[in-house]
């Protein structure tokens, strides 16, 4: 009992001890993209100061995720022309299905890059419980997140991208 309370207290102190001026930096988590580049999530989030970054967490076995990404891919260039944003998929396929990811996206003709989160390190860090899950990063902060997909959800997402300050 004492131990549990002590851990809780430590956590609480860590949080409150850091009250101060604004900063929202993300942890460094390095993921490989299907194109072979090593990308650090902290750098990616920092780059959202110039152009907002939209991350879509998905998996090859998740049908709603694939439906959402196919729909987004069909209109991606058109929407990016309205307001520029970077769109990146984050595959949470583990070693059961990760070897499928590259052939899968090439075979679908998807135009965006995909990061491989093979042991769910980034998914866990960002507290994502289920896929699909979409995040918008702007000014190094998560300004919007949405879980699940229902047909038409992409319209909401594009509307938010268009109107975000």
């Amino acid at each position: 009992m004492k131990k549990t309370a002590r851990i809780g207290l430590l956590f609480y102190l860590l949080l409150t001890a850091n009250l101060g001026k604004a900063q929202s930096d993300f942890p460094s988590i390095k993921l490989k993209s299907v194109s072979g580049k090593l990308i650090d999530f902290a750098d990616l989030a920092a780059s959202s100061k110039d152009t907002m970054v939209v991350l879509s967490f998905w998996a090859t076995w998740c049908i709603p995720c694939v439906t959402e990404l196919e729909t987004i891919n069909d209109v991606l260039e058109e929407k990016q022309a309205i307001r520029p944003f970077k769109f990146i998929g984050v595959s949470i396929d583990d070693s059961r299905t990760s070897q499928r990811v590259k052939p899968f996206i090439k075979g679908k003709g998807w135009k965006f890059d995909v990061l491989m989160d093979i042991n769910s390190d980034l998914k866990r860090e960002l507290n994502i419980t289920d896929v699909p899950h979409v995040l918008i990063l702007k000014d190094n902060k998560i300004v919007y997140r949405h879980t699940g997909y229902i047909a038409g959800e992409e319209d909401n997402l594009f509307e938010i991208i268009k109107t975000l300050n």
Binding site: N18, G20, K21, A22, Q23, S24, D25, F26, N127, K141
Partner: peptide, 20 residues
């Protein structure tokens, strides 16, 4: 933290806090 968020949490808190 919810209380802080009403006053714009990011003005007061260093670092990144998240959960589920």
């Amino acid at each position: 933290h919810n209380n802080l968020s009403a006053q714009n949490i990011n003005q007061y808190i260093k670092g990144h806090f998240n959960g589920s």
